[in-house]
Write a protein that binds this DNA or RNA. Sequence first.
DNA 1: GTCTATACTTCGATAGAC
DNA 2: GTCTATCGAAGTATAGAC
Lengths: 202, 202
Amino acid sequence: MYTAPVDSRQLLIDTMSELMWERGYADTSPREVRQRSGVGQGSMYHHFPTKRDLALAALERNIPDLLPAASELDDPGDPMARIEAYLMRPRDPLKGCKVGRMTQDPQVREDPVLLAPVARAFTQVHASWVRVLREAVAARQLRDDLDPERLAHTLMAVLQGGYVLAIAQQDPGPFNNAVAGALDLLRAAAPAAPDHKDKKRN
Amino acid sequence: MYTAPVDSRQLLIDTMSELMWERGYADTSPREVRQRSGVGQGSMYHHFPTKRDLALAALERNIPDLLPAASELDDPGDPMARIEAYLMRPRDPLKGCKVGRMTQDPQVREDPVLLAPVARAFTQVHASWVRVLREAVAARQLRDDLDPERLAHTLMAVLQGGYVLAIAQQDPGPFNNAVAGALDLLRAAAPAAPDHKDKKRN
DNA sequence: GTCTATACTTCGATAGAC
DNA sequence: GTCTATCGAAGTATAGAC
């Protein structure tokens, strides 16, 4: 099987992406990127004139890592099942979210160029959430007085905030609880009169 | 009116606390603390031998800033009203949470001593949430098949995650939506047969 | 407790040969 | 495109007088 030669440029981007996830932007130095990637000084500054340029490439590289997961929300099939599947997807609560993490770094959040890829990623995930929530309302799995736009933000926040709680306690429990609690609420928010096509409730 | 003389020590702690909120731990330098506080070099290292010592004092100082707000949850009166009041409390979504922010700083999260005050603060807020949620269940404002422990984490996560979304978009909207959506869900999760003592629903 | 001076390291970037 | 050498600034702390 053919493996494309990994060029220095891509190696730098991948390494920067890893380090930014682990340590954030401010606290990741060009030196560490060089050392972990094995790419030399001259080479690095040839491809990326500044640390910020490299960070931008790394941030953009991360978006596609986040979206395939969210696109599960767009799959065909039972809306509520997709919501549950996405929420319960295996995650590592103690590592946090590659994308969400960046919002806490002042050097990222105060730089519109660096923040843009982060904003775009969340906007797209939000759109997927809104679609599946609308479908759930249409399928009478959720009360129709619930606003999908709002709920989408609520559920995204549960995940992002769950990471914060888990890291604070150094325990995945709070993350898992937060997600499970959100699912409980969604189930409790089914319409009073279930669709006659539904399988009967337990 | 008497104003206590602000000693260097307290001034350093307050300044460090501010800077850590604004810029995080890794990205805040002793130099900045000196400059903003006006305290001299020798004085600073007299009170705090290392940056970490100063950070620890600042983190501990921040807890009491967070808890009075959460203690609203413990007030007497209608549980659901207290929940709503706390969730809708005026906040600045774009500034984020003083305490939650720290979980994203590797130098804090990998240092058990620095992380401890953060964990403690969240543990206490969680306890307040659990109490008020139990009361809400007892008052038949929430279905009794909802688990207060879980829900407490869910609602804390909505707030913490709301900040992340708001900062990413540089717009308080997503935070406000996340919170409003959570309230919608809580209201939708009222028991099917309301308490006969309840005022009649609109 | 506070001051000034100094030390040593890392950061982020540039220079210029190959 | 890659290499080695170097730079000025900032970070973090120590020394030692007052």
